[in-house]
């Protein structure tokens, strides 16, 4: 039915979200930086001054966890409510519905880009050696975007039928703050609990980020070359794409019923 230009539409929707969010703010994009900077400051204070964590470059260490975590939570909860929030569009225009949650997630990745800039600036400021593994970063971020898009397709569809879904997503996000090594090191986690982390793609992301930026080593691709855990890039790739396709299939299955339930 709708034979339009998907890319142009997504680009327009992404820019719309972005412009609406920033046009009425005097500090504009700086707000995207303020939250991680403040959190980084507070966490650094608590962990280095109160808990006496002696690791070098603690701000960078925290930020490696904060940036992927922040993006994940904002994009996922935004994506979850996106279909219900754009009821006006869904009820009136025969636009392909998949575009709505995906473009919401993508507009959050503009945030992400700003925060990654901050992360890299702090990395260079902390005299961490810039290494060839940094080329992996765009790959890792792309995987996170695919992963969150898939989750959002799934929960956006669910949210149409059961409006409590968004609160479940928000609670899950809060739990994730603690069950993902955002401000502690994964090496502190001992068996049998490591399995909880093994199954969590967000944890894998934070760990891979830390390997690349903080430790300056390659992301591990296979179990064989991992020292103490089996979190691998392969797992991340597999998880991201399977979640995306499952999300897409479920979304497509339920989207003809959106009209009646919004």
């Amino acid at each position: 039915m709708w034979r339009g230009d998907y890319l142009y539409l997504i680009q327009n929707l992404v820019m719309k979200d972005f412009r609406i969010r920033y046009r009425n703010m005097s500090l504009g994009v700086l707000w995207s930086l303020l939250n991680p900077i403040v959190m980084m400051g507070v966490m650094t204070f608590v962990w280095t001054k109160i808990f006496k964590d002696g690791r070098p470059h603690f701000p960078l260490f925290v930020l490696c966890g904060m940036v992927p975590y922040n993006f994940f939570t904002i994009a996922w909860s935004g994506g979850t409510t996106s279909i219900v929030d754009s009821a006006g569009l869904i009820k009136r225009l025969p636009v392909p519905r998949e575009v709505v949650p995906v473009s919401t997630v993508l507009s959050c990745s503009i945030h992400l880009l700003v925060q990654v800039g901050l992360l890299l600036a702090i990395a260079i400021g902390s005299h961490v050696v810039v290494n060839k593994y940094w080329f992996w970063l765009p790959v890792v971020w792309a995987l996170e975007i695919v992963f969150v898009s898939g989750l959002s397709l799934l929960t956006a569809a669910a949210n149409v039928f059961v409006r409590d879904t968004r609160y479940i997503v928000e609670s899950t996000n809060l739990v994730m703050m603690w069950l993902v090594p955002v401000f502690y090191d994964f090496s502190l986690v001992k068996d049998p609990y490591t399995q909880i982390y093994d199954l969590n793609p967000l944890a894998a992301l934070v760990i891979v980020m830390r390997r690349i930026v903080y430790e300056g080593v390659a992301p591990n691709w296979c179990s064989g070359c991992a020292e103490h855990h089996t979190l691998t890039m392969w797992k991340l790739v597999l998880a991201s794409f399977s979640v995306f396709f499952i999300g897409l299939i479920v979304f497509r299955r339920f989207k003809p019923m959106f009209y009646e339930h919004i």
């Binding site: 709708w2 339009g4 142009y8 327009n12 929707l13 719309k16 225009l93």
Partner: peptide
């Protein structure tokens, strides 16, 4: 105008 046109299916 651009957003609405894109929603209606127009290309760039």
């Amino acid at each position: 105008v651009c957003i609405n046109a894109a929603l209606l299916g127009l290309s760039r």
